[in-house]
C-alpha cells in the first residue's frame, strides 16, 4: 500500500477505497484459515442445536430461523478481531489515521472487506445449513436476503466495538459485551422475517426496516468507528 501512495501522491477517494479493500483481501487470502474458521464455527454451532435439544424435523424447522441467525451473529462476532487487530499490531492502522485522505473512506473499505470475508461466505453456505435444519423451502430466499442485508449491519456495528477495544488486553470478551446488545434489533427483524416467510406471511416490512438499519449504519457507524480508532490510538 505504501508503494501505491508514494507513486501517486494524491490518490482519489475511489483509489483509496480500492487500495485498502484489495490489501485487506490479499492479506486475508494469505491466511486462509482465518477465513474458514468463522464458517466452521457457524456450522458447529448449528450442529449443536439438534444434538442439544431435539433432532425432530418439526421442532428443527420451527427453530431454524432463530438458530441460523444466532449462529451467524456469533460467527460474525468472532471474526471481528481480524478487522483491526493485526493492522494495529503492525502499525498499518496508524498510517491510515495519518493519511491525508478522509478516514471515513478507508474505514468504509475495511468494513466492506470484512463483510466480503465473513458475511458473504456465511450467506453463501447458509442454504446448506438451512436444509440440514429442515427450513421450509419457501423461507430460503428470505433467509438469504436477510443475511445479505443484515450481516453488513453486523459488520458495521461490530467495527465500532472493535475500534473502541483495539489494543486492549483480553478484548475478545469485552467486545462481545459491548456489541451483542446492539445486535438485537437486527436479530429481531431478520429472524422475524424468516419466521414470517415459513408461514407464508409478507416480509417486505421486515426487509425495509433492515434496509433502513443498513442505511443508518452506513452513514453513522464510520463516524463512531473513526472516533473510536482515534481514541484507541491516541495514547
Amino acid at each position: 500500500m505504501t508503494q501505491t501512495i508514494s507513486a501517486n501522491p494524491q490518490p482519489s477517494l475511489l483509489a483509496l477505497f480500492r487500495t485498502v479493500l484489495s490489501r485487506d483481501l490479499v492479506v486475508a487470502f494469505r491466511h486462509p484459515s482465518d477465513l474458514v474458521n468463522p464458517l466452521i464455527f457457524f456450522m458447529i454451532v448449528v450442529t449443536l442445536f439438534p444434538l442439544a435439544v431435539s433432532p425432530e424435523k418439526q421442532f428443527l424447522s420451527q427453530a431454524a430461523p432463530g438458530v441460523l441467525w444466532v449462529a451467524a451473529l456469533l460467527a460474525t462476532l468472532l471474526s471481528l478481531d481480524m478487522l483491526f487487530q493485526s493492522d494495529f499490531q503492525d502499525g498499518t492502522l496508524e498510517q491510515l489515521l495519518l493519511a491525508p485522505q478522509p478516514l471515513y473512506i478507508s474505514i468504509l473499505a475495511k468494513v466492506c472487506g470484512h463483510w466480503l470475508l465473513s458475511g458473504l461466505p456465511l450467506t453463501l453456505i447458509s442454504p446448506l445449513l438451512a436444509f440440514m435444519l429442515f427450513l421450509p423451502a419457501e423461507a430460503l430466499p428470505a433467509l438469504v436476503v436477510t443475511l445479505l442485508l443484515g450481516t453488513p449491519v453486523l459488520s458495521f456495528i461490530g467495527a465500532v466495538g472493535s475500534a473502541l477495544t483495539v489494543g486492549l488486553r483480553k478484548s475478545g470478551l469485552l467486545l462481545s459485551l459491548l456489541v451483542l446488545p446492539l445486535y438485537i434489533p437486527v436479530l429481531i427483524f431478520s429472524a422475524g422475517a424468516v419466521q414470517a416467510a415459513t408461514i407464508g406471511l409478507p416480509i417486505v416490512g421486515h426487509l425495509a426496516l433492515l434496509g433502513a438499519m443498513l442505511a443508518l449504519a452506513l452513514v453513522l457507524a464510520p463516524l463512531a468507528i473513526s472516533a473510536g480508532l482515534r481514541i484507541s490510538l491516541g495514547s
Binding site: V160, G161, L164, L178, P181, L182, A224, A227, G228, I231, S232, G234, S235
Partner: peptide
C-alpha cells in the same frame, strides 16, 4: 482520559 472518551463514544452509539 482514554477510558472516558471511549465510554463516551460507546454511550453515544447506545
Amino acid at each position: 482520559d482514554q477510558a472516558a472518551k471511549a465510554s463516551a463514544v460507546l454511550a453515544l452509539v447506545g
